[in-house]
Amino acid sequence: MGENLLRNYLEAGAVVIFSVGFSTLLLQSNLIKKIIGFNIMDTAVFLFLAAKGYIAGRRAPILTGPGGDPAQYINPIPSALVLTGIVISVSVTAFALALALRLYERYGSLDLNEILLSREGEKT
């Protein structure tokens, strides 16, 4: 066990939330819950990134003049990555919701287990 677990409380929180989202995505049989799980997972990654970019006492990377002093601003890269990540997460959510809508139209249920059970019944 390393020494920084408590100091990195934001990152630690983020990975716990990530695992919560992961298990929701993996274990819930209700599609809407699965989609929420996916969003929790991605949001945890954004929290992790934001925590990685933060440096105590520094400002957001909006320059006021040419030749900014790197010691005054936080790291801009994690912010840029979060921006990209959010857009991807929104896109995937839209697609997943559309699929859920279609599934509901076809089977009348959003619960994957229920659908699989009724389909197994059709086969036999």
Binding site: G2, N4, N8, Y9, E11, A12, V15, S19, S23, L26
Partner: peptide, 20 residues
């Protein structure tokens, strides 16, 4: 999922400190 959380927490504990 539990194993994932444990492993990630262990990893985080080795990462450089927050805000540094």
């Amino acid at each position: 999922s539990g194993a994932l959380a444990a492993v990630l927490l262990l990893t985080v504990s080795y990462l450089p400190g927050f805000g540094q």
